[in-house]
């Protein structure tokens, strides 16, 4: 897929070998223009999580470069990396909220990178941060839950808090690791729609790891297929046909994937 704009994220020759010897990524190159919502699909163990974790260096790449908005992330010092991470919001499959803190505290924790230690220890955040937090919570329909503890929320509510927390960072890019894998089909669609809408409103780019091909096709503008640590597909959702699925998931899984795709679409229609 040709890209005219200068990319927001430019990954080149990225390779990751874990200390255990697993070669998770091999020479992956990927460019994401500003504002593009991209789905990353592939079988389990293909290296999807590794790829997005190499972007914000929760996992250190073995070789290759990652450039975000002109800044080479792979060579940053620890302090500079911290500042760069503020521009990358991350959303997790198991929400990763701090369970014993309130919703509001969890949301405000997205501002930690912009706040001094003692101010954050005493929860003294600037007024406009708290205002923004309420606005976003209201946007996702959770403003009345602000003082509830995170472990008192349902899965869908937690994921919405996770999304708000990521947006509080004022990011340019969202890294989303299987946001719907722990949710029911209806909530999954709501969460995906929410992410895509928010990205559009704010002009954010996103990389969304997802196992559900139907959801990926419906909500993403571009789909990248990963298999055994290499990119094997890159195109629009409509170009993802049977042959492409075969190349991503392999011959044996292919028939099952098709069936699953059809039934999921039926389910989605009846639910919606």
């Amino acid at each position: 897929m040709p890209e005219n704009a200068t990319p927001l994220l430019d990954i080149a020759g990225l390779t990751k070998r874990y200390p255990t010897g697993d070669l998770a990524l091999t020479d992956v190159s990927l460019r994401v223009p500003p504002g593009q919502v991209m789905a990353l699909i592939g079988p389990s163990g293909a290296g999807k999580s590794t790829l997005i974790r190499c972007v914000n260096r929760l996992v250190e790449p073995s070789s290759g470069t990652v450039v975000l908005a002109g800044e080479a992330l792979t060579t940053l010092s620890r302090g500079a990396l911290r500042r760069a991470r503020r521009r990358m919001g991350m959303i997790f499959q198991e929400y990763a909220l701090v369970e014993r803190l309130t919703v509001m505290e969890n949301v405000l924790s997205g501002r930690l990178g912009y706040t001094g230690f003692w101010a954050s220890w005493f929860r003294r955040f600037p007024r406009r941060d708290v205002e923004e937090a309420f606005r976003l919570l209201d946007r996702v329909g959770l403003a009345h839950m602000a003082d509830k503890r995170a472990d008192a929320l349902s899965g869908g509510q937690r994921q919405r808090v996770g999304i708000v927390r990521a947006l509080m960072q004022d990011p340019a890019l969202l890294l989303v690791d299987e946001p719907t894998a722990s949710l029911d089909p209806k909530t999954s669609r709501q969460i995906m729609r929410l992410i895509v809408e928010l990205c559009e409103e704010r002009g954010l780019a996103a990389i969304i790891n997802i196992h559900d091909v139907a959801l990926a096709q419906e909500f993403a503008r571009r789909i990248v297929g990963l298999r055994a640590g290499r990119i094997v597909f890159d195109g629009g959702p409509d170009t993802l046909d049977a042959a492409a699925l075969t190349s991503i998931y392999g011959e044996e899984d292919w028939s099952r994937t098709i069936r699953r795709l059809e039934t999921e679409e039926n389910v989605a229609e009846t639910v919606a």
């Binding site: 914000n56 760069a84 369970e99 014993r100």
Partner: peptide, 26 residues
């Protein structure tokens, strides 16, 4: 739970902040 800690680290929090916000409550 390391994932709660990792989430804060990914948001650009400093080490003392990760300790105070991610570990202390747990």
């Amino acid at each position: 739970d390391p994932s709660q800690v990792e989430a804060l680290r990914a948001s650009g929090a400093s080490n003392p902040q990760v300790l105070a916000w991610g570990m202390v409550p747990q």
